[in-house]
Amino acid sequence: MTSVNATFGEVAAERRIASAPLSHVSIELGHLYMEDFEAGPERLREQFRRVAPWAGTVRSSWQDRVPGGRARVSTCFLIDDYFSRFSTPAELVPMVLEAAADCDLTIDYIARESACAVSDGVELARLVEDRLVNDPPPDTNGSRPPVKESGWLCNGARSPQVGTVQAMGKANRWAPPLQNAKRGHSIFVDVELWDENGGKRTWSCPFLAAVWQLLRLGLLRTDGRLPLRPVMREDAFPDDWESLPAVMQLNPAAAPFSAYTTLSVLSPRFLPVELAVRTILSQVAVDGDVLRQVVARSGGEGIRLEEELVDRISYVFA
């Protein structure tokens, strides 16, 4: 008898990962909070005027990098509807678009911050929290579960608790916290990820911002599927925030929402928030298959991406 090469496949045993359409860069033109809105459209115009030259620079630098100058650049704008709710999409969105147009900026996508917590029944924030792999302090050998202070994440080792360990045993003395990969001296960062009040969890602003970055980098999946797809705008904007899609595409000709890299142009007052975002993102384990997928895609276009995802994120504080 000749030998037969049999193959047997089982769908449930195989893993399939959807791929996201990707631009070269996703530029965040701004981030709108209640107080900005209350300050009126002039404040918005002021912000867009500051952002415009930087956006232009990034756009042209990518055009130089990509053969034929065909860089895919998309722009987005995030509105806070999570920590405070104000006005309605119908009133607010046109105002934002108008202010941007006044400064020769096109907003391709508009997103709601609360979508970073939950979107279409998918708890994106939870998804990211589950993928945190704590930065281990030296002498972490796996024998103990990672030290997790519920709701907090740091970049090193916290100060040990002061007190005794055993009856009549030696007392612990105070010691400073330490950053793990410090260069000479520590810059120890401890970030609050969420708090809970009466059983209701509120995610912190840096944590949602970290989710936002991951969405823009197209690195999140749920059951192998993309957790969120931009929805094309309709003629009128709704009167309540819930009816506004998580991410809405405003410009029909826009390049894809997610991108290999991101740029955010922000006011310097966001500096501490973004340090916290970086602390979080450097401890998020993105699925290995997704990482490989993105590297293969960019490689196919002749683009070498930074290995570490925090290095794919850049900022201008202006």
């Binding site: 792999v133 930065d135 793990n180 990969a181 450097s282 401890q283 290995g288 570490e308």
Partner: peptide
């Protein structure tokens, strides 16, 4: 010979 920032290691899962 130096310990790298954690993101370096997370780019190489396992």
């Amino acid at each position: 010979d130096r310990r790298q920032p954690w993101s370096h290691y997370l780019a190489r899962p396992g």
